[in-house]
Design a protein around this nucleic acid. Structure first.
Length: 511
RNA sequence: GGCCCCAUCGUCUAACGGUUAGGACAUCAGGUUUUCAUCCUGAAAAUUCGGGUUCGAUUCCCGGUGGGGUCACCA
C-alpha cells in the first residue's frame, strides 16, 4: 500500500452538528488527518446538517474548538476565527450541506432523467405497518417497492395534487455489489439484501447517502476513512456512484471504539464527550497519542508519539480490523508521562485556571492573591508549590485538591495521625518541639528547602533519631495528609511563618 | 431474524508458517524513601473451540461458538 501514490489524496471528515464531539469522532478525525498529512494531501471538514430536526445549537462551534484544542487544522472547510466566528475556506465550498441544496437538486434531476430514482408517496403509517408485519413474519424489514412501478403520469398527478413524497433509489435486482475496503479487503453484498432507500426526504433535504456521495464527488474526495458502522451501507453508496456514472473513492472502514461492555461508545456511557476530557485536564498531545493507538500500531514497541511522529508513521496497513476498548487507566498513565515532561512554566500556565476555578487563588497582573489569606504572592511562589505535585497527578483537574493545603492553612485533623507507625505520642511531641526550635532559629531569607533539610538531617543523626519519627510528623503537620510531597520541599515552599504556624498547631493538638 | 464485519494476557498490542508467543497499561512482589508519586528490578497473566492443509500452525482453509455493526424520510 505504501507504494501506491497518494500524493493527491483528499480526505474529509463529515460530522453532523448534533451534539458534542465524542471520542470516537475524534479518533476518526485524527486518522483522516494523519492520513492526509502523511501523504501530503488535503484534509477537509464538511458539515452534514441535512437533518434539520436534530441540529444542536453550538455543536459546530464545539467541533471547531475541539479541533483547535487538538491542534488539527483543516485545509478546507469551516474554521474558527480569532474572535470565535465561523468562516469557511477552500475552493469547493460551501462546506456546510444546508447551503448546498441547489447542488443536490441539480444532481437529482440528472438521476431522474436517467430513470434511476422514483417518487414514493407511502405514508409513515403504511411503512410502519409494513415493518411490523415483516417483523411478525420474521422477515427482514424492507420497503416493498409499492410506488416503484407507478407510471410517470400517475406520479405526476400525485405530485400536482400536493401529495407529500420522497425520492427513492431503484435498487437493481439480485446483483452482487463488490468493492475493495483498504482495511478489510473485498466485500461482496447482494442487492436483494438492500431496499429502495430514500435519497430525498419529504422536506426536500437530501439524506446522508445522497448528499454524501454528491459532495464527496464534487469535492474530489479520493479516500473515505470513516467508522465501521458505514461498512454495511457502502454497497448502496457504490451503486449510487454507478448510477451517476462516477468513479467512487477508495473506502477504509475504521474499527469501532467500544466501552468495557464491548458496546459502541455512546453518550450514555458517561465520559465520552471530548469536552469532558478537556475539562478534566488531559493534555491534547497525550489524548491524541492515546486514541491513535486504539486501532493503530506502527509495528514497533514505541508507545509515546508526537503528532509529527504519528504523521510520519501512519499508514492504513497498520490499522486494525477489530474494535478497541477505551481503557481510561492507560490514558491516565500516558497523560501522566506528558505532564511530567512539561516545563515548570508550562505546568504553571496549565494549572492556573484550575486553581482559579477551585477558588484557591485570584490571578491579577503580576501578583496572585491567595483567597483564604488575602496575601499577594509572586507567580514564582505558586510555581514552586505546583512543581511539588507535578510527578503526582495524572490529570490537571487533580491539582487543586492535591495542593489545597498550601493555600488553605486552617485545616484540621485527628492528632494521632501525626504519630509515625514505629513511634509513639511522647516521642512525636518531643520531635515536633525540637523541630520548632530548629526552624525558629533560621532567618526568613535562609528558609529554603535545602537549608531546612541540612539542619534537620543533622539533628536526626546527632541525636540518633529514627528518620521517620521526625519526618513523618513534620510532613503531616505541614500538609495535613498522609500522602504528600517531601517535608523539606513543603517547608521551603510554605516559608518560615506558615511552616512554624503549622508545627505549633500540631504541638498544641498533641499536648 | 437477514446481511456484513471481527477474534493473541483483564486492556491496548507485536508476530505476517519454525520465537521459551514479545512490549505497554493495570495488578502483585521487591528495591530506593519519612508517606505518596516518580524511578529501578521482578512475578503472574493470552493465541475462542473443532476439523483440515503442512515436516511444522497464533499465522492458511472450512465449520461451530462468541462479540460487534447494520437493516429509518438519523447520520
Amino acid at each position: 500500500m505504501e507504494n501506491i501514490n497518494f500524493a493527491n489524496a483528499r480526505v474529509r471528515i463529515a460530522p453532523s452538528p448534533t451534539g458534542f464531539v465524542h471520542v470516537g469522532n475524534l479518533r476518526t478525525i485524527l486518522y483522516n488527518y494523519l492520513f492526509a498529512k502523511h501523504y501530503k494531501g488535503k484534509f477537509l471538514i464538511r458539515i452534514e446538517d441535512t437533518d434539520q430536526t436534530r441540529l444542536v445549537h453550538g455543536a459546530l462551534e464545539n467541533l471547531l474548538q475541539v479541533l483547535k484544542w487538538a491542534g488539527i487544522e483543516g485545509d478546507e472547510g469551516p474554521y474558527l476565527t480569532t474572535d470565535n466566528k465561523v468562516k469557511e475556506k477552500g475552493d469547493y465550498g460551501p462546506y456546510i450541506q444546508s447551503k448546498r441544496l441547489s447542488i443536490y437538486n441539480e444532481q437529482l434531476v440528472a438521476l431522474l432523467d436517467k430513470g434511476k430514482v422514483y417518487p414514493c408517496f407511502c405514508s409513515k403509517k403504511r411503512l410502519d405497518d409494513l415493518r411490523e408485519e415483516q417483523a411478525k413474519n420474521k422477515q427482514a424489514p424492507k420497503y416493498d417497492n409499492f410506488c416503484r412501478n407507478l407510471s410517470k403520469a400517475e406520479a405526476q398527478a400525485m405530485i400536482d395534487s400536493g401529495a407529500s413524497y420522497v425520492i427513492r433509489f431503484k435498487m437493481p435486482e439480485n446483483r452482487n455489489v463488490v468493492f475493495e475496503d483498504l482495511i478489510r479487503g473485498e466485500i461482496v453484498v447482494n442487492t436483494k439484501d438492500m431496499d429502495d432507500y430514500v435519497l430525498i426526504k419529504s422536506d426536500g433535504f437530501p439524506t446522508y447517502h445522497f448528499a454524501n456521495i454528491v459532495d464527496d464527488h464534487s469535492m474530489k474526495i479520493t479516500h473515505v476513512l470513516r467508522g465501521d458502522e458505514w461498512l454495511a451501507t457502502t454497497p448502496k453508496h457504490v451503486l449510487l456512484y454507478e448510477a451517476f456514472g462516477w468513479q467512487p473513492p477508495k473506502f477504509a472502514h475504521l474499527p469501532t471504539l467500544v466501552n468495557k461492555q464491548k458496546k459502541k461508545l455512546s453518550k450514555r456511557d458517561g465520559d465520552v464527550s471530548v469536552k469532558d476530557f478537556i475539562e478534566a485536564g488531559y493534555l491534547p498531545e497525550a489524548f491524541l497519542n492515546f486514541i491513535a493507538l486504539l486501532g493503530w500500531n506502527a509495528g514497533t514497541e514505541q508507545e509515546v508519539y508526537t503528532l509529527n511522529e504519528m504523521i510520519q508513521q501512519f499508514t492504513l496497513d497498520n490499522v486494525h480490523k477489530s474494535c478497541a476498548v477505551f481503557d481510561i487507566d492507560k490514558l491516565d498513565w500516558i497523560n501522566g508521562t506528558y505532564i511530567r515532561k512539561l516545563s515548570a512554566d508550562d505546568f504553571y500556565e496549565k494549572c492556573l485556571p484550575y486553581l482559579t476555578k477551585a477558588n484557591l487563588i485570584t490571578p491579577a497582573k503580576d501578583k496572585i492573591a491567595i483567597n483564604s489569606t488575602n496575601e499577594k504572592v509572586k507567580p514564582q511562589y505558586i510555581k514552586n508549590i505546583l512543581s511539588l505535585e507535578q510527578t503526582r497527578i495524572k490529570k490537571l483537574s487533580e491539582i487543586s485538591e492535591a495542593i489545597k493545603f498550601f493555600f488553605v492553612p486552617n485545616f484540621d485533623y485527628i492528632a494521632d495521625r501525626l504519630i509515625w507507625k514505629k513511634s509513639d505520642r511522647s516521642q512525636t511531641l518531643e520531635n515536633l518541639r525540637d523541630l520548632e526550635k530548629i526552624l525558629k532559629k533560621l532567618k526568613k531569607t535562609e528558609f529554603t528547602s535545602p537549608k531546612v533539610k541540612e539542619l534537620i538531617m543533622e539533628h536526626i543523626s546527632q541525636n540518633a533519631k529514627d528518620t521517620g519519627s521526625v519526618l513523618w510528623p513534620m510532613r503531616f503537620a505541614l500538609s495535613g495528609q498522609d500522602r504528600s510531597p517531601d517535608p523539606f520541599e513543603i517547608a521551603g515552599a510554605l516559608g518560615k511563618d506558615q511552616s512554624l504556624a503549622r508545627i505549633t498547631f500540631a504541638i498544641q493538638k498533641l499536648s
